[in-house]
Design a protein around this nucleic acid. Structure first.
Lengths: 142, 142
DNA sequence: ATGATTAAGTTGTATATGCGACATATGGCC
DNA sequence: GGCCATATGTCGCATATACAACTTAATCAT
């Protein structure tokens, strides 16, 4: 039984891939003082100009409490702001000018690490990741 | 720029996939009081009968300090033991009878969640995950 | 309208994860 | 044998992540 789990378990593979890729991006973005988890959130918010927390949660498949704390941290660093500022029901998140500037500054680093990640993953299988993510994003509880 | 990152970033996809799949397994294994991260470690140790911590780290691409703490927790629950028991340099990890028994008990649940994960990921792309994981496992710092 | 149901956010708690610093042990080299 | 580089483990610290319970706001049904 153990043999089969060791050989076939999807979770082992998915989680290993996540650790390696996350580490890759985190190291590349460290000079900017931001982690990839935070960049993901920042980009999700900035994508449409602004976004409600619940929308970001659905887009990234993130638990609301996780996002709540991440956002709090990023507000503290001046990368995000919300309207209204108090975390009521109808807040809208927005990226700050400082946050946007930082995103711009990390663009070259992002290109590099993205290329490296594609290489390590294998160009032939990059598309599979997109398909899988798209499928899982739809599959969820909404 | 933000558009391109939102559309193409590999890390977003990999991390989303990880959250969804990890959540799937965690919910399925909750009745057994074990998380998928712990099952992964337990299986890695049990695979060869026993294993040194550093070997498990290499196999799963886990940071040594992460494993150290996870193992401590799992020892406390009686699923793992080490020889010698004090965490010196040459310890060897072993699964306990209780740990093995628990693995056996969760076999049906594992089969179910594995099938569900394959379905959600898409059978056509399951192999891509294996290839990617294999490539990343080799690419590392050894 | 209003009461019930559901959605959205926050906070408490537990784990997972990695980095840096440290202690220690192993192995080669002279 | 004694030394240095390296590998192994542990600990402090910061963050990410989810679940449960709670609060509050929106929606729906009558």
């Amino acid at each position: 039984m153990v043999e089969r789990m060791a050989r076939e378990c999807l979770s082992v593979r998915v989680r290993l891939i996540n650790r390696v890729v996350t580490g890759l991006y985190d190291r590349a973005l460290r000079p900017f003082g931001m982690r990839v988890s935070q960049v993901n959130i920042l980009v999700a918010v900035a994508h449409g100009g602004s976004a409600r927390p619940a929308d970001v949660c659905r887009a990234l498949r993130l638990e609301k409490s996780t996002l709540s704390r991440d956002v709090e941290l990023m507000k503290g660093r001046g990368w995000l702001e919300s309207d209204p500022p108090a975390g009521g029901r109808n807040q809208v998140l927005r990226i700050t000018p400082r946050g946007l500037e930082l995103l711009d500054q990390m663009e070259p680093a992002w290109h590099e690490v993205q290329a490296e990640a594609r290489r390590l993953v294998g160009e032939a299988d990059v598309d599979a990741l997109r398909r899988i993510a798209d499928r899982l994003r739809l599959g969820g509880p909404d």
